[in-house]
Amino acid sequence: MADTTLTLPAPRRLHLTGWRKGVLLALLALAWEGYARHLGNALLLPTFSATLTALVQGFASGELVTRTATSLQLLVTGYACGLAAAAALTAFAALSRWGAELLELLTAMLNPLPAVALLPIALLWFGIGAPSLVFVITHAVLWPVALASYAGFRAVPRTLRMAGRNLGLSPLRFIAEILIPAALPQILAGLRLGWAFAWRTLIAAELVFGVSARSGGIGWFIYTNRAQLETANVFAGLLTIILVGLIVETLLFRSAARATIQRWGQEQ
């Protein structure tokens, strides 16, 4: 059923909001440029144009590309581990009371624990290097995703559950073919949140102990450039983080939502 308040077709409306955001971005860049010129201290705040130049140079030289690739590789590994653990835990919770109580207990205890706080333990257990980073990213992803998925499972309407049970599905089929698609809006929201947490955790972890890592990611790039007082490069690193976040958000999560829950009319 069509939303009566929506007078313009969706693509045109998107286009219009995009146009406004473009103007706002240009104004922000202009303000940045103006203030940085007024300040006249490139060590504290490089101009927008200098940052852009550093960004372009960083990508042209390939340094920012390899840094980003290193970070993303770690991120994807940790994200995948976190998702696998969340899937196992949530399936257990959906199938048994014990599993549900375990999930509630663990998320209540561990969700508020910042992933970076686990870094000293990770270093102790896995040494300096990729496994430690993967461990903290897994922790950052696991709890928000498990929590959101479990909440999604619980919110599946009783009628839909009965309609599924009516077919005599096995427990695993019931989860895979009824509960997961029905809870997809919440699961997608959890995946999005997990991605943001993982990204932040990774950069923070790289900043903390990137110093000793053999080949660092973007966090390490920022850290070394700060030490060398190459502030424009520091800002270029920050811009890269923002860019990657935006690209993943629009390309991955928005199109996943468009292809699934929006098409099925499940969007909340």
Binding site: P157, T159, L160, M162, A163, R165, N166, L167, G168, I178, P181, A182, L184, T260, W264, G265, Q266
Partner: peptide, 20 residues
């Protein structure tokens, strides 16, 4: 015993179909 396709139910609520 447990629910099964030998006893198919139609409910009052409209959300008994799989939306996806």
């Amino acid at each position: 015993g447990r629910p099964g396709p030998d006893r198919m139910a139609v409910f009052q609520e409209f959300d008994q179909l799989l939306p996806w």
